[in-house]
């Protein structure tokens, strides 16, 4: 999902850079406030861990193998803001040291994989875990589903950036990126659940537990992340995915200067907005996404059931008097 140099236009690159710089700023403030000093080296080591874990092979079929992305794994183990820092370190190092992902696309890559992926993933994780009612099994279920959601969300953001730059039209970029990552996300979900279950078995105290609420500050950081993600959605995805001509075009039409002034500029994208709107590709991709979400949830549920140790369940039953 690393975008190389030369695929984004200046507006998109600058907008993504500003958004991810703001997100990084929020994460730095939050981590400095919440993380005790003795845990600070853990950010760097966890980044090295994510990088090393990405090198582990998970055989799929016919000699191909998948690997971990790690945003949700880091978020479940360390919390959302620390995960933003960890993933940012990974992506900055990949860019400068290994030329993986472009320098001008660094902002966009940070936005997709170090902001959208951990924040969306952690949000889904907390939400599902609260609904499922706590305990190891609901933690694993929430982890798996969150891993799938974060992978797909990052892919959609990536497709939006490519389309907003005019490199690849949305009708091609969205089905290709989302379609592939609906499948990849299932693998990511399974790997993340397996790793979190193994950590919970070995050292359960290492799983991140959110600190007791420190009042408005926590909501402020949630609001800041939400605002940044919404801005990203508005800037990258909304204009290219909307089946209607945008406001500017409508104003131009009403004022009557559309054919002359905007004509040559607008004709190309307009052809894609034509009556079918979001072509069949996008619609069937959305359908595939819905099916994928159900499959991911079922997969996470089964994995969580299988991976919760029997002993823990029996101990819990024994603890309830009369059971």
């Amino acid at each position: 999902m690393h975008i190389p140099d030369g695929f984004l236009d200046a507006h998109t690159a600058v907008a993504a850079g500003l958004l991810s710089a703001a997100g990084l700023g929020v994460a730095l403030r939050r981590v400095r406030r919440v993380l005790p000093a003795r845990r600070i080296p853990l950010i760097g080591l966890a980044a090295a861990f994510v990088f090393a874990a990405q090198m582990l092979n998970f055989p799929v079929a016919g000699g191909t193998s998948g690997h971990l992305i790690g945003a949700v794994l880091a978020a479940v183990l360390l919390g959302a803001s620390a995960s933003v820092l960890v993933m940012s370190s990974v992506i900055i190092l990949q860019c400068f040291l290994f030329a993986d992902g472009g320098l001008t696309a660094l902002g966009a890559n940070l936005f997709n994989m170090a902001l959208v992926a951990p924040v969306v993933g952690y949000g889904v994780y907390r939400f599902v875990r609260r609904l499922a009612g706590g305990g190891l099994r609901s933690t694993l279920l929430a982890t798996g589903f969150a891993a799938w959601c974060s992978t797909v969300a990052a892919a959609v953001a990536c497709a939006g950036e490519l389309a907003a730059s005019g490199t690849v039209v949305w009708r091609v970029a969205f089905p290709a990126m989302a379609g592939v990552h609906i499948i990849i996300g299932l693998g990511e979900a399974l790997i993340t659940v397996l790793v979190v279950a193994a950590v919970a078995r070995a050292r359960p105290e290492l799983l991140h537990e959110p600190a007791p609420s420190d009042g408005w500050r926590r909501y402020a950081s949630v609001a800041a992340y939400g605002l940044l993600l919404a801005l990203g959605l508005v800037v990258f995805v909304a204009p290219v995915a909307s089946p209607w001509p945008d406001g500017l075009l409508r104003v131009a039409e009403r004022l009557g200067f559309a054919p002359r002034a905007v004509g040559p500029l607008v004709r190309a994208p307009f052809a894609h907005y034509a009556v079918p709107g979001l072509g069949a590709g996008a619609r069937s991709t959305a359908l595939a996404g819905a099916v994928g979400a159900v499959v991911a949830f079922a997969l996470a549920w089964v994995a969580a059931r299988l991976l919760t140790p029997r002993g823990a369940r029996r101990a819990a039953e024994k603890a309830v008097p009369g059971a």
Binding site: L28, G44, A47, A48, L85, S89, V90, I92
Partner: peptide, 9 residues
């Protein structure tokens, strides 16, 4: 904090 993390990584 970011530079320290990158260096440690």
């Amino acid at each position: 904090l970011l530079v320290t993390s990158l260096a440690l990584m």
